[in-house]
Design a protein around this nucleic acid. Structure first.
Length: 429
RNA sequence: GUGCCAGUAGCUCAAUGGCAGAGCACCUGACUGUGGAUCAGGUGGUUGUGGGUUCGACCCCCAUCUGGCACCCCA
């Protein structure tokens, strides 16, 4: 074997089958986003590092981004997320945009992390944001979009769920426990770790942070309290709205959801697979009411979420939700090339079909029919047309259905209409 | 960035430190105007890469790359 220059760590090659899966996913996202009236947008893949500095979270920008100096010495980042780009784009036109603003996007992102199942260095992300309103109903709309998407791709509430919490609620509870403000980020992190660490380690971590025994006990009670949300006006409204949307079966209160990014101000949520072995979250999001100010705009509330393509694709594959014929050609017909003499007639026939709107493969060489039929079979075309000397003499074409194996000859002038009929029937069945 | 596990044909995997193999896939033929099934035959490898130990290395040692698991972080 010759040496092939390897692909870069953490990148993926999209062969036609994977590309078809990605496009399929994109179409689902697009459909759901549109259904809720969101508009598609896109930002640059390159941003100045300072856009992210201290707003996304130390680690994300300092350790987990691709950063390099450009020829002028400016520090450039391959975008690790979209929310700050979105905030900048909104801030730049803040006075002329119409609110509430609803935008969505699907594009590539990069994070310099150690690749693992469900995590690559280059990935695609669905971003959906609603800006200009700070109501629980706005958060509920986003959760409803997620639930609608799950339903649309065939993931039932028994397979995936959306956990919801409010950082303000937890903050208030921590204050009630006399946990000092400066300890809050650390305690948030502690809460975030609970399901990951064995209980003794978790307890040790809490002690190391300086929590007293009573504070620790109360914190555990908080996290076990499935009714805690009832103390929060906004969470009560949010869950009531989800009821109205008819998506309550996907959503549930989860006091341990905190999220890592620093810019979330109140509502936070996260979707996960409920039963399977994929532990990484499918998507995450929340409310970020200070972000516009942070990038130099006027204060403006916002809420949104992001879903990576890697985990969701694994899950869709696992549950057989992806269409089965993704690796197949999308061509509908193969026009064979019988021999050199009839080659021109075959090319002309193929072009006629294309002009009629059919997706048509030709065969760029005269070889035995057996080869061409085998090719059609393997590539996944269902119909083939044969136009050889006999057919040309009689003004007909031979149409073969590869699934049934049946074939018949029909007047050449009727070929298009007949194919359309067969394709329409096949599509509807 | 840390620790652990793995890497052999296109794929899934064998091979006590002693001749690199099987199944599937692929190609050819049985079948020169007809695919799938069956049968017969065939192609395919610098054992991830580079060093070392050894008479001899897929096997042991070191480094490195890639993937996976647990961290870290997060989509």
């Amino acid at each position: 074997m010759k040496t092939i220059v390897p692909s870069l760590k953490g990148t993926r090659d999209f062969y036609p089958e994977e590309m078809a899966a990605r496009t399929w996913l994109y179409q689902k996202l697009r459909q759901v986003s549109k259904r809720f009236g969101y508009q598609e947008y896109e930002g640059p893949m390159l941003e100045l590092v300072e856009l992210y500095a201290a707003k996304s979270g130390e680690e994300l920008v300092n350790e987990q981004s691709f950063v390099f100096p450009d020829r002028g010495g400016e520090l450039i980042a391959l975008r690790p997320e979209l929310t700050l780009t979105l905030s900048r784009m909104v801030a730049q036109r803040q006075r002329q945009l119409v609110y509430p603003l609803r935008w969505w996007s699907f594009g590539p992102f990069w994070r310099y992390e150690r690749p693992q199942k469900g995590r690559s260095r280059e990935f695609f992300q669905w971003n959906v944001d609603l800006i200009g309103v700070d109501t629980p109903a706005a958060d509920a709309e986003l959760v409803a979009i997620i639930a609608t998407f799950f339903k649309e791709v065939g993931l039932s509430p028994s397979l995936v769920g959306i956990g919801i919490n409010d950082r303000q609620l937890i903050t208030a509870e921590l204050e009630a426990l006399s946990i000092p403000d400066e300890l809050r980020p650390a305690v948030f992190h502690l809460i975030d770790r609970r399901e990951k660490l064995p209980p003794p380690d978790w307890a040790a971590y809490a002690r190391d942070l300086g929590l007293s025994d009573t504070q620790f006990t109360r914190l555990q009670e908080l996290l076990a309290d499935g009714e805690l949300w009832k103390k929060s006006d906004s969470l009560r409204s949010l869950f009531a709205a989800l009821e109205a949307y008819g998506v309550s079966d996907y959503a549930r209160y989860d006091p341990s959801i905190i999220r890592g990014l620093d810019y979330y101000t109140s509502t936070v949520f996260e979707a996960k697979e409920l039963t399977g072995d994929i532990r990484r979250s499918i998507l995450g999001g929340g409310r970020y009411d200070n972000l516009l100010e942070a990038v130099g705009g006027e204060p403006l509330p916002g809420t949104g979420f992001a879903m990576g393509d890697v985990v969701i694709t694994l899950i869709l594959k696992q549950y057989g939700c992806l269409p089965p014929d993704l690796g197949k050609t999308t061509a509908q017909v193969l026009v064979t090339t019988f021999d050199e003499a009839s080659s021109a007639a075959n090319i002309a026939l193929a072009m006629e079909l294309r002009q009629a709107g059919l997706d048509v493969l030709g065969y760029p060489r005269a070889t035995p029919l057996s080869k061409q039929i085998k090719f059609a079979d393997r590539v996944g075309v269902n119909y083939i047309l044969i136009l050889g000397p006999d057919e040309i003499k009689n003004g007909v074409v031979t149409l073969k259905d590869l699934r049934s194996g049946e074939q018949r000859s029909l007047p050449r002038s009727e070929a298009i209409a007949e194919l359309r009929k067969l394709l329409a029937r096949h599509k509807s069945s």
